Computed example of a mutant assay.
Amino acid sequence: MNQDYLNLAKQRRSIYALGKEVSLSDQEIVDLVEPVIAESPTPFNNQTTRAVFLFGQAHDQLWDIVIERLKTEVPTAEAYAKTVAKLNSFKAGHGTILYFTDMAIVHQMEQDFALYKDNFYDWSEQAQGIMTMGVWTTLANNGIGASLQHYNPLIDEAVAQAFNIPENWRLRAEMPFGSIVAPAGTKEYMDAADRFKVFN
């Protein structure tokens, strides 16, 4: 039984202690990730997934946007200080990938295939999950740590303005990545009997 994929998937963990010292250049990271996204399946091959790569000042700018935006959402100064510390751990990384769904395609599919119109948004979310798992695992296989964050929709408008995002692209997640300063903790698994059923 070949378990190569399982062994790769086990490398993928949420890494929160990030640094900037990665072994690949920015362009090499883009060249590594773009084909993973292109090869990730989407319903009807409609290719709704989009990605924006942020490095250097653009990466810093994103997390400054999040820090500023959450200032009005966090209830106390103490809680905000903890939030800023967490956000600065993402900013300490090498870069961020922003993941989007092209809603123009989703809506077009809803019109073109009316029988399945209630499914296309859900299917686009499944495509997001498949894509991000592939990218995350690929980064991990190259010694790059990452995590998946969701500060959307709070930051959607500011991100669109800052990075000239098309109006029909809907932000779905942010993936800060970088060198691994500290590993992830031990992963716990629920009992298999509570999770799986097999019928013969």
Rank of each mutant, 00 (worst) to 15 (best):
A77P: 07
L54C: 03
M103I: 07
S124G: 02
Y99G: 01
I97Y: 00
K91L: 12
A81H: 15
N119V: 15
G56D: 05
A77I: 12
H107V: 10
W136G: 07
L62Q: 01
W123S: 11
I67E: 04
K71P: 04
G93C: 02
T132S: 12
S89P: 01
Q47G: 07
V52N: 00
P35G: 13
G93Y: 01
D118I: 00
Q27S: 04
H94E: 06
H94A: 10
I29L: 10
A51P: 00
I130Y: 14
W136V: 10
V74L: 04
F100S: 03
D31H: 03
T96H: 01
L32Y: 09
D31E: 13
I65D: 03
T101F: 05
V33S: 05
V74E: 01
A85H: 06
V106R: 09
N45E: 12
A85K: 09
A51K: 01
W63E: 01
F90H: 10
T138E: 05
D112T: 15
L115E: 13
E39P: 02
E28N: 15
L32C: 11
I67L: 09
T132E: 11
D64S: 12
P43D: 14
Q128T: 06
V135K: 00
K71F: 06
E78S: 11
I97T: 01
K91F: 09
V36F: 08
L139T: 07
D26K: 13
F55A: 09
S89A: 06
I37Y: 05
V106W: 05
N88D: 13
V66L: 11
Q108V: 08
E78L: 08
F113G: 02
M131N: 10
I37G: 02
I37A: 06
D26R: 13
A114W: 14
K71A: 04
R69H: 06
K117Q: 08
R69D: 07
T137V: 08
E125C: 13
F53S: 01
Q126S: 08
D122C: 13
A51R: 01
P41L: 10
Y121G: 03
G134T: 08
G56W: 08
G56P: 09
Q108T: 15
P41T: 12
F55N: 04
G129M: 05
V36C: 07
E110R: 06
A79H: 10
D102C: 03
V66Q: 08
D60N: 09
A114I: 15
I37K: 05
P41M: 10
L32V: 11
V135Y: 00
H107P: 03
I29C: 05
D102F: 04
P75I: 13
T49A: 07
D60R: 13
A58K: 10
P43E: 07
M133T: 14
P35E: 15
T132L: 11
Y99I: 02
Q108A: 08
A127P: 07
H59F: 02
L98E: 00
V52C: 00
L87S: 05
M131Y: 09
A81S: 15
F44S: 11
N45F: 14
E34Q: 11
I67Y: 06
V106T: 09
T138W: 11
A38F: 15
T83P: 04
F53V: 06
W136S: 08
E34A: 11
